[in-house]
Design a protein around this nucleic acid. Structure first.
Lengths: 190, 190
DNA sequence: GCATGAAATTGACAAAAGTCAAGAATTTAG
DNA sequence: CTAAATTCTTGACTTTTGTCAATTTCATGC
């Protein structure tokens, strides 16, 4: 669980013994491609760190499916609202590939604050960081064209383009698969 | 400061004496219409609760201006990332009308955690709630047409339509002022 | 109250993005 | 390795949304 250590360290800046305490609460878990990690409407009973693989967060509504995000190695995944507020999960989370996770149960997650006094404060900072990133994303959706959003993805997360079905990336960027494909060609030619 | 009390109470669920402690740290402040509360690039030195009035959060880039959000009575306003991480403010915040605030300085804000042990935990929940709302907003931008986004605003925040310049609402919804105007007419006629 | 400036509306047009359908390419399962 | 299924690409066309410019409406300061 070396990688989990390192990420917790880099995200939260805890002492060694605190990291050890938290780390013990995470258990290895694997998902096969196409397995669901979470289903919309269900309770969200866990939080996971992605050791390897790709998870797609998406919503189904009426006829169409909207991919909200694709989470990858080195990131956490859950429905935070559902986990914290005990509300029904707002989306599906499904493995796009065989995936290795380190998973903490809701009850163990809730106990961290008792074990490590600084935890709530550090987690607050972590969530605030995520909040700031989402604000940037809203901004990109408000102000950028489809082509610019594509370029932004290319800059910030080029690995994704080779690893997951492009239709999901298109949806995540708020455009149709056809538009995505045409932008892609345009970029190749230029 | 009755209204501040009530909001802190409803948001955070603290004891009376805890609320009193926090409330003392907030000082009344007023802004004239068009005054800036915060300027992009500057340090963000405070957090405020809006007692009355409207504040516009926006970014200027190249030629155009993008309104990220308009904050109103009963909500908090700041650049959270800039406040917490001591980074330059990412946007302007300007009063759209004469505005009354209750304001806490950065240093007092940072001291709350020492005064009220549960604070970090409660604030974590508050920020997580905001995060969840922002996730919903991303979803609306990914999946809804301009017309549907207009209707959503009409449903969730009808008061705004009478109180602030429509061009800013248009921008906040990710459409041009002209499109906004045409949708409006269409809705009137129907 | 009136003059000025800002905001909103409207029309004509242009550009961006979506839809549908067909076919090519790639991936997957046996 | 092959057949089937899925994904990606492409063209033709439609719809949505944006842009520009002209007017009208509204707000503001004197």
């Amino acid at each position: 669980m070396q990688e989990l250590d390192q990420y917790i360290q880099s995200y939260f800046g805890l002492e060694e013994h605190e990291i050890a305490t938290i780390q013990q609460l995470f258990k290895p878990e694997t998902l096969k491609k196409h397995d669901y990690y979470l289903k919309m409407g269900r309770a969200c009973e866990r939080l996971s760190f992605i050791r390897s693989g790709y998870l797609r967060i998406f919503v189904t509504q009426a006829d169409k499916e909207v991919t909200q995000w694709i989470s990858t190695q080195g990131y956490f995944v859950t429905d935070l609202s559902a986990l914290i507020f005990n509300t029904p999960a707002r989306w599906h989370i499904q493995a796009l590939s065989d995936t290795e996770l380190f998973t903490i149960s809701k009850s163990d997650y809730q106990s961290i604050g008792d074990l490590i006094p600084r935890w709530h404060q550090l987690e607050k900072l972590f969530i605030a960081k995520c909040f700031g990133m989402l604000e940037e994303r809203v901004f990109s959706l408000l102000s950028m064209s489809a082509e610019d959003r594509y370029k932004l993805l290319l800059d910030t997360n080029p690995a994704l383009l080779n690893e997951v079905p492009l239709q999901y990336l298109a949806s995540m960027l708020g455009m149709s698969a056809e538009t995505f494909s045409r932008i892609r060609r345009k970029m190749m030619e230029a």
